[in-house]
Amino acid sequence: MDDYPRVRDCMKKGVVSIGVHASLEEAVALVVKKKIGTLPVLNSAGHLVGVTTLHDIMQNFLPDFVDLLGDIDFVKDFGAVKAPSQERLKKVAALSVADIMEEPVAVESDSSLVKSLSMLEKHGMWDLPVVDGGKLVGIASRVDIVRAFFLEWQIPHLDDTKE
């Protein structure tokens, strides 16, 4: 069983990443420019040391009290808190990527698709960094992996759409 589908066959290779010493402002600029949701964080040796997602970044702009509420469906209008306060923006500007990044979750490039998709599910992620000996070599999104799954099944109808 050596020919099972691997994550390296479906991952994207030119990964946009950020250095661990970068500021949050730089991370935001990168997210805006590249339209991406997940930023792997690398140290100077190119090793993956963390992951920053849109969620981590945006948590810093939302007011803290939202966390206290179990549900906010009934809030139709945020009244006096429609925009982040100046205080908050100042606080966020002072943060660095290292302050908000999460522990890295990644798979080796020869991992199976099942393992990769399971990792995404278990950790509630959308994009999975792929490494070779700790060095970041690619990133595979849910769409990439699930698409590879479906192609692997060789459903007849898919032939028409195959690139």
Partner: peptide, 16 residues
């Protein structure tokens, strides 16, 4: 005086 007194009227108690 509250900055936005109308905001509380827009909460939907029934939905809570």
């Amino acid at each position: 005086r509250p900055a936005d007194p109308e905001a509380v009227m827009k909460l939907d108690a029934d939905e809570a």
